[in-house]
């Protein structure tokens, strides 16, 4: 097993291109779907980081976005709706040398899987969570989502939603996430850059990505975001300043910030877990127990 850095620095294999990370089938997303930009960015980021397909595990939930593992050349798990972060945590603990990227939707991450979102952030599990946020339930043909704006008319809110949306950025910060970013899928170069930063970050990283649904969300379109998104780095935001991060994350109007809101160093779950100190990935270890241990266990029962 090799880590990202080892691969980037030490191996004499031909560098891969984004095309090498293309999966066995083409995406079935609607033409113009924001998810294409995310897939492209992910493939580019993997190539630019020098990752090999077998060093990456992509874990998704259910929804349009979550078909992504089939479209990328990497190990993948297409899990249950809302459960990708839990499954990915288990997988990361089972093989902490894998690079784990979770690709889920806003319903997956902030709705049905909200509990796991809170706790995966708090535990600082070393994985990158890319939320493909289209502010709508697409695969079920257009119902309100946890990130839909107040007043939004959908099939389940024909008179307009009366509920305020969740703010993924401030939520993640309050939950203790150590890397919190936002992106817009229409800016592939910026998203690629953010994914690379997030994967390199040791600990839980969230990238909430605006990924317009061209079929069911006619409010938050490419046109809506294009004129509004502003990069935090262009305004000299300090990612160690959580108060400023929260203030900027709550702005939603003519100006909507993208970039890294918050980043801080904190030991990740696998670093904190002594069982992983030596012996390589748990999943590859021998199963038998040492007799000196088992004899002591039975002795204590007598």
């Amino acid at each position: 097993m090799t880590t990202t850095t080892d691969v980037a620095e030490g191996r004499s294999v031909a560098p891969l291109t984004a095309r090498d990370f293309k999966g066995p089938v083409d995406p079935d997303w609607c033409p113009g779907c924001g998810d294409f930009g995310i897939l492209n960015s992910l493939q580019r980021a993997c190539a630019e980081m020098g990752l090999r397909p077998h060093e990456l595990l992509v874990v998704s939930g259910i929804g349009c976005s979550s078909n992504l593992p089939g479209y990328i050349n990497a190990y993948g798990m297409h899990t249950l709706h809302g459960r990708a972060l839990a499954v990915a945590t288990g997988a990361k603990m089972g093989n902490h040398e894998m690079n784990v990227i979770v690709t889920i939707g806003d319903g997956d991450g902030y709705g049905i899987g909200g509990n796991h979102f809170t706790h995966t952030a708090r535990r600082n599990v070393d994985l990158t969570c890319v939320v493909m946020n289209n502010q709508i339930y697409g695969l079920t043909t257009g119902q309100v989502s946890p990130t839909s704006s107040t007043g939004m008319k959908t099939k389940s809110t024909p008179y307009g939603s009366v509920e305020p949306p969740v703010n993924p950025i401030t939520s993640a910060i309050m939950n203790g996430a150590t890397f919190v970013a936002r992106a817009y899928s229409g800016d592939v170069r910026h998203l690629t850059h953010l994914i690379k930063q997030a994967v390199k970050h040791k600990g839980f990283s969230l990238i909430d990505v605006f990924s317009p649904c061209v079929t069911f969300n006619l409010d938050n379109t490419h046109a809506f975001f294009k004129g509004r998104v502003k990069k935090l780095e262009d305004e000299g935001h300090d990612p160690s300043d959580w108060k400023s991060a929260c203030e900027k994350a709550m702005m939603w109007g003519d100006k909507i910030y993208t970039g890294i809101f918050l980043q801080r160093e904190l030991a990740s779950l696998d670093q904190q877990e002594p069982v992983l100190n030596e012996g390589g990935p748990l999943g590859f270890r021998d199963l038998g127990l040492e007799r000196k241990h088992t004899e002591r266990i039975i002795q204590r029962m007598m």
Partner: peptide, 16 residues
């Protein structure tokens, strides 16, 4: 829910 799914994730990587 998390318990079961986490166990499945770990199992997939080879852990009993």
């Amino acid at each position: 829910i998390g318990v079961a799914n986490m166990a499945i994730g770990a199992a997939h990587t080879g852990c009993r």
